[in-house]
Amino acid sequence: MKALTANRLADGEAVFWNQGQWVPRFKDAQLFEDAAVAETTEGEAKSQQTVVVDPYLIDVIQSEGLWAPLSFRERIRALGPSNHPQHGKQALGGDDIAALQHAHGAARSTGRVNLIKRK
């Protein structure tokens, strides 16, 4: 399962793709089961040069019944800095935030799934 993420151009905030919109919370991210659909959507996102910077796909896994990015880096992007729990998205609290904070099984710290270009 994959999600599509980027940073918003105007303010740099980490955002996630959902049906053509960019949303700030990971729990609202659209999840892609089909890799081909995900890649097509990524291509579409890349054309939004004045909206976001550098969109890319990340792997997501299930943890405590909720979805979480697989990598530690992407969890920090979805939460905020761990030294200032009052800053970033984590300050909003909620079950989805708690799930991200507890999630286990990180497997790739860069989070990016497309670093190696497939032909």
């Binding site: 530690f72 880096r73 920090i76 800095p81 761990s82 030294n83 200032h84 710290s109």
Partner: peptide
């Protein structure tokens, strides 16, 4: 890794 796009791991919590 708490802030930096280049980091591989966190440094601040270790220092703390």
């Amino acid at each position: 890794l708490d802030y930096c796009a280049l980091a591989n791991a966190r440094a601040i919590p270790i220092a703390q």
